[in-house]
């Protein structure tokens, strides 16, 4: 099995280059992460990438695989055309090889105040929420912050500091939809203006790449609807 992998080490390389690797005896059903780990262990310790849980829950190993963003640990090699071309997630600075600097992404996440706000005194037990109210959070709370969506979004590439991006907006929606949250008005107000939310042009790349099957475009649409009905 053949791989072409983006390499860059700022200490030694003037510019990035592509390195070829080859693995034999790759069993069917092997995930890309397992192949990368084998390359690192058997051939080249300097190949650098993030990884942890190996089952698509921690969100560490987002990368661009044959032109599409995805998590290496849940991408089966069987599904990939050879040679497999692997690059870092696009649109954010590269630290080394497949490792990007995610600070801008995290900054936008923090910007939506991604935490429950309750102003009333808390009861001594749980806040009540019906199963129907809770169901509104399905498809929103499962995000693993892998950045596959935001780094596939042209609007985010062009304005990563002004457009919040699909991941942060999905998170905004997660709190706007939460029946327990008491910051509804403020949350909508904060998203006004031409950039933060409205730079989404429903290109839908985010939906196509999300490894958790989430739909940020739909979430953004829900926020827009709420803004409209609020202004009426």
């Amino acid at each position: 099995m053949k791989f072409k992998i983006y390499r860059y080490n700022p200490e030694t390389d003037k510019k990035p280059y592509v390195q070829d690797y080859e693995l034999d005896k790759v069993e069917p059903g092997t995930m890309l992460l397992a192949a990368l780990l084998r390359i690192k262990d058997e051939q080249d310790q300097t190949l650098s990438f993030r990884r942890s849980c190996g089952e698509g829950v921690c969100g560490s190993d987002g990368m661009n695989i044959n032109g599409t963003n995805g998590l290496a640990c849940v991408t089966s090699l069987d599904s990939l055309k050879q040679p497999v071309e692997i690059r870092p997630l696009p649109g954010l600075p590269v630290i080394r090889d497949l490792i990007i600097d995610m600070e801008q992404f995290y900054k936008q996440y923090r910007a939506v105040k991604p935490y429950l706000v309750v102003n009333d005194p808390m009861p001594e037990v749980e806040l009540l929420q019906t199963p129907e109210q809770r169901e509104k959070l399905d498809g929103l709370y499962e995000c693993v912050l892998c950045a596959c969506c935001s780094t596939s979004c042209p609007s985010f590439w062009w304005n990563p500091d002004k457009f919040l991006g699909p991941a942060a907006l999905l998170q905004a929606s997660r709190f706007i939809e939460d029946s327990r949250d008491q910051d509804f008005e403020k949350r909508l107000e904060d998203l006004e203006g031409p950039f933060k939310l409205f730079r989404c042009h429903t290109i839908m790349n985010c939906v196509n790449v999300c490894p958790k099957g989430l739909n940020p475009t739909k979430a953004i649409g829900r926020i827009k609807n709420k803004m409209v009905s609020r202004s009426l």
Binding site: L116, V125, E126, P131, L137
Partner: peptide, 18 residues
């Protein structure tokens, strides 16, 4: 558990909201 719920953890719910 109640503290976590107050922190925002989206626990699954029973019909009575608990």
């Amino acid at each position: 558990v109640y503290e976590l719920e107050h922190f925002g953890v989206p626990f699954s719910r029973l019909d009575n909201g608990k």
